[in-house]
């Protein structure tokens, strides 16, 4: 059934419409980023620029300390990722494999953390950092995310599935607990670690809310904030410059998505949050 030519045609048109709704805004972003100011102010709009205005990208990049923003973004995202791996792997291992007093209590504490979004606690955390004199530093962007309840939850699941006999055999061979983690647990949990890593990196690379709250000066601000600031140019919004600036933020993620589509989709779909 359903292989008739009208059906196929209808199905094809439908698919084309759906893809356009989701892809065309990005095409429009690219097209706008190469236009001249005049070409953004014609109605009906010009589909393609007459000539490619590459200078929009340099104009966007030079409108602020974008190299600093870029470095901060990379530094913050990578630092968070490394710290998260360092804190979640041992914690997940302890929760998965050890019996100890308070095990249930501490795991419940971890799970409570999972339900607290940054949008809820920014005010008290801001006051705390202010008391410590750490406001407007990269510490304020990194420390709160140095561990991840969600990462512990995911990793604990996969650590639990490793058969106990395997660990016993390793212990008999004289392997230390750290060696067991490094040589047995991490290799087995590698897909979960990659999934979590992609999720974490993309989330913090894109983050606008937390750095907006915690930083005030250009030295500590990240790329999303720098891009958002492009709106505040004098003499109205310059859409061609704005879109060029956003390309700087979007293109790296789209390139990664192109090559690791399967892993990224799994990272976000099976992690289920956001």
């Amino acid at each position: 059934m359903n292989t008739t030519i009208p059906y196929k045609l209808l199905n094809g048109i439908g698919i084309l419409i759906v893809v356009s709704i989701f892809a065309f805004p990005f095409v429009w972003m690219i097209s706008t980023s190469f236009k001249s100011l005049g070409e953004t102010m014609i109605f009906p709009p010009a589909w393609l620029p007459e000539s490619l205005h590459w200078e929009n990208f340099t104009a966007a990049w030079n409108s602020g300390p974008f190299l600093t923003y870029f470095k901060n973004s990379i530094f913050v995202s990578i630092s968070i990722l490394i710290l998260q791996f360092l804190t979640i792997i041992p914690a997940a291992y302890a929760f998965a494999r050890y019996q100890f007093k308070g095990n249930k209590f501490f795991f419940a504490l971890t799970m409570i953390t999972l339900m607290i979004p940054a949008q809820l606690i920014f005010l008290p955390v801001y006051l705390q950092f202010s008391a410590w004199g750490l406001l407007d530093t990269l510490w304020a962007l990194i420390l709160p995310f140095a561990s991840s309840a969600f990462g512990i939850f995911l990793l604990r699941q996969s650590f639990k599935q490793v058969p106990e006999e395997l660990l016993e055999a390793a212990r008999l061979d004289g392997a230390s607990e750290w060696k067991i983690i490094l040589k047995i647990m991490i290799p087995i949990a590698k897909p979960v670690l990659i999934t979590f890593g992609l999720f974490s990196f993309i989330t913090h690379w894109n983050d606008y809310f937390w750095p907006l709250v915690m930083t005030t000066s250009d030295v500590t601000r990240t790329l999303p904030l720098g891009i958002a600031k492009l709106r505040e140019v004098e003499g109205g919004v310059a859409w061609h410059i704005l879109m060029a600036g956003n390309m700087i933020l979007v293109i790296p993620i789209l390139i990664v998505f192109f090559f690791a589509q399967r892993q990224i989709i799994r990272a976000f779909v099976y992690t289920g949050i956001k």
Partner: peptide, 15 residues
């Protein structure tokens, strides 16, 4: 093994 994670959660979420 759990203390670094628990410290982060206590300082930045629970407290």
């Amino acid at each position: 093994m759990i203390s670094p994670a628990i410290l982060v959660f206590s300082l930045f979420f629970i407290y």
